[in-house]
Amino acid sequence: MDPDLSTLDDRLDAAGVDAYCLDAASTEPNQLYLSGFDAPDPFFTAYALTAPDGTGELAVLVSGLEYGRAKKESRADAVARLADYDYHERVGEYGEREGTARTYAAFLADLGVESALVPDRFPVGVADGLREAGVGVGVDGDDVVESVRAVKTDEEVEHVRRAQEANEAALRAAEELIAGAGVADDGTLTHEGEPLTSERVSEEIEVTLLRHGCALDETIVAGGADAADPHDRGSGPLSADEAIVIDVFPRDKASKYHSDMTRTFLKGEPSDEIRDRYDLTEEALEAALAAVEPGATGADVHAAACDVYEAAGHPTLRSDPTTETGYIHSTGHGVGLAVHERPGLNPRGGALEPGHVITVEPGLYDPAVGGVRIEDIVVVTEDGYENLTDYPVELVVG
């Protein structure tokens, strides 16, 4: 997949600079997206508008260890080794910081680059070193590459779709574990004679994802009061008659693209309060989804969810910015090479475009009741959206 970098070209032209540079490992999504190269250690990438015909040239500077693989796997027009620019000699003479900067400056000089934009989180020591070596360095505060990444190609949408299919298999395994659990006299859920814990359910999710070619560092399986904190990972035994929020956000190991989905399950009998909150959250989900279309803003989608909750008497951060209960987060976010990326569905969210892949995830939280959240992942289309989620919305299991 070769990305459309015309927006990046325009940004460089507007800034009056020659190139856009990154110094990061491929765990930084912009680096992986721009270079197309998956490497665990930082390497230097330059996208330069210095070709005679005015088109961009992508070049990467890597260690000798990664040179052969970068030539085969990256999308770079040119691949160079640190040794080609006497990196070790420069570091030996000038020290790590200045030697690295001089190496990068020589690499840029061969590309005809005299000035460059870098993202906000570009290493400050490298930026200062490049400036000292005579390269003009400006900061791209708008993160133009993330904006480019936000609009997915059909191929990228398929990457997310495959991750979502694995996600649903993992969530199904978790649901079946909870549905099949026994209930001890004290209300604790049990599995094979032992308390069923958040950790055991998380393990089932992770194992299932691995079998489907995905992985994740952590997930959320939070019951009772733990679920009242939207990002509490959950721990310890789970109980009957309490809402259990399960939020899974895996990364496909082949494509590196993520998915994200949340369901809330309950084994037993829900209280009237939990049932009302669940039904209201499903209504907020449907209202927010109905607001998703090209030209609508992330703020519009967020407002649709807030309208539902506020009409029912629940506080939101819109109605009370200091509230610690009720609807206490935004309505969603973009998903791709990062699990949280542009666009945002929040009061500042800008216009949605076809190709944006976003989550829609309203929820209600109160330590006295627990938490409820429902999350789908959708792609914005020319006339609305396509829901990539094919998983039922049901509270009671078993």
Rank of each mutant, 00 (worst) to 15 (best):
A290P: 07
S255R: 12
L285D: 02
I244W: 03
Y309D: 00
A287M: 09
E242T: 15
E273D: 15
G313M: 07
L317P: 04
R251V: 13
R318E: 10
D241C: 11
Y309R: 01
D272I: 13
P315H: 09
E282C: 00
E310S: 03
P321M: 10
G334F: 13
T325N: 07
F249S: 11
E269Q: 07
L266V: 14
Y278M: 06
A287I: 10
E273K: 09
G295C: 10
A243W: 05
V248Y: 01
Y257Q: 05
D232Q: 10
G295M: 12
A303N: 08
T316C: 02
D279Q: 00
D247G: 06
D272F: 14
D252W: 04
L266E: 08
A291K: 14
T323G: 06
A311S: 15
A312R: 12
H333C: 12
T262K: 09
T316Y: 01
P250L: 09
A305I: 04
E269W: 10
I328G: 02
F249P: 03
S239N: 08
E273G: 10
A290K: 09
D300W: 06
K253G: 01
A243Y: 05
A240I: 07
D260M: 06
D300P: 09
D320Y: 08
R277F: 04
S259V: 02
